[in-house]
């Protein structure tokens, strides 16, 4: 049996692209007996690229290899034509929004971003200007003087993106930038990433949710269990995913009211109360319609939505399908 999707996706062993910004050449990474990345050959071109894979697929490992934090067990990783591992001079040209929700909590958002600017080698005056510019870009100017420890998840994610941008890097790596954010923050963050792409930056954005990635780029890299599954256009992948019911978890203090609103929607095929009392699990056969409705739902007073997670079981099924075929 042939898989039309796999056929339509770019062959991963295609000839090297001379315009590659990030290059993985026979890269493997082991953590003891656990494999993080397995013999990866990949050229990522300039522009915005989505890095898609379920949790544990190796996305963070791949980004940490690209940003020189991890040394490949085998093969070479190059960014902008230079070796990535432990190459401090390269860091002037790259920015990373890490996955972990970690900050110097005692600092205000402005102090944190300013410190990152100074660490990147900007003079005090340039750092102040750059801090003001990126705070404005991520819409955090109003909250910039508050301590980071009081920030909401969305504000923390914006701050992380701001620190990655503050030294005006050529290449930006965003590791799950939308995780745990509310729908409004999610929409804003996607707008920011979209705008950065329009400005001509090269961005590699990782996610385990296809519908997040497709908003910012049609070009995706699919990995699973440390292996490259496919590189290509998002449309074919999305069509396949839509054949599987999509499961989304919503967190809301008014979860019953929210469930009541959702259960009457045509595209919603199931609603369950989650194991934690303030969450509901929604199954939809039309994720696009569902996600487009979320922002307005989140803003309504009787059914506020605090967080949105997408279960990646469905994506895992797609990966299995791709790998097996």
């Amino acid at each position: 049996m042939t898989n039309p999707l796999a056929d339509s996706i770019t062959d991963v062993s295609a000839k090297p692209d001379p315009g590659a910004i990030v290059e993985f050449d026979g890269v493997s990474k082991w953590y003891g007996h656990v494999i993080g990345v397995n013999n990866l050959n990949l050229k990522i071109p300039a522009g915005v690229t989505g890095l898609l894979g379920p949790n544990g697929a190796g996305k963070s490992t791949l980004l940490q290899l690209a940003t020189g934090q991890l040394r490949p067990s085998q093969g070479t990783v190059k960014v902008l034509g230079h070796r990535a591992w432990n190459n401090f001079a390269l860091n002037r040209y790259i920015g990373l929004c890490p996955e972990q929700d970690a900050f110097y909590e005692w600092m205000s958002g402005r102090e944190f971003i300013n410190a990152c600017a100074r660490l990147s080698g900007l003079s005090p005056r340039d750092a102040n200007d750059a801090t003001a510019r990126v705070l404005d870009a991520v819409k955090m100017t109003e909250h910039a003087n508050r301590p980071v420890k009081g920030y909401s998840k969305g504000m923390r994610q914006r701050t992380k993106i701001a620190q990655a941008l503050v030294h005006d890097p050529l290449v930006l790596f965003l590791d799950e930038p939308l995780t745990g954010t509310d729908p409004v923050a999610r929409r804003d963050l996607l707008d920011i990433i979209h705008r950065l792409g329009d400005e001509g930056r090269s961005i590699l954005v990782s996610s385990h949710v296809l519908h997040e990635v497709q908003v910012v780029t049609p070009h995706i890299v699919l990995i699973n269990r440390g292996r490259l599954v496919a590189v290509g256009n998002i449309r074919q992948i999305r069509d396949l995913i839509d054949n599987h019911p999509h499961r989304i978890i919503l967190k809301s203090p008014e979860y019953r009211a929210l469930a009541a609103k959702l259960v009457v929607c045509e595209d919603v095929v199931g609603v369950e109360i989650g194991r934690k009392n303030d969450t509901i699990l929604v199954e939809t056969n039309s994720p696009d319609r569902f996600y487009s409705r979320l922002s307005s739902l989140a803003l309504s007073a009787d059914s506020p939505i605090e967080e949105v997670y997408s279960e990646d079981d469905n994506l895992e099924a797609v990966f299995r399908y791709l790998v097996n075929s």
Binding site: T67, G68, Q69, N86, F88, A89, L90, N91, R92, I94, G95, L96, P98, Q100, A102, F103, Y104, C116, L119, S120, G121, Q163
Partner: peptide, 13 residues
Amino acid sequence: QTLTYLLIRPIPR
């Protein structure tokens, strides 16, 4: 987990 913010700067380790 803040070490990342230092390691990704243009400062030798």
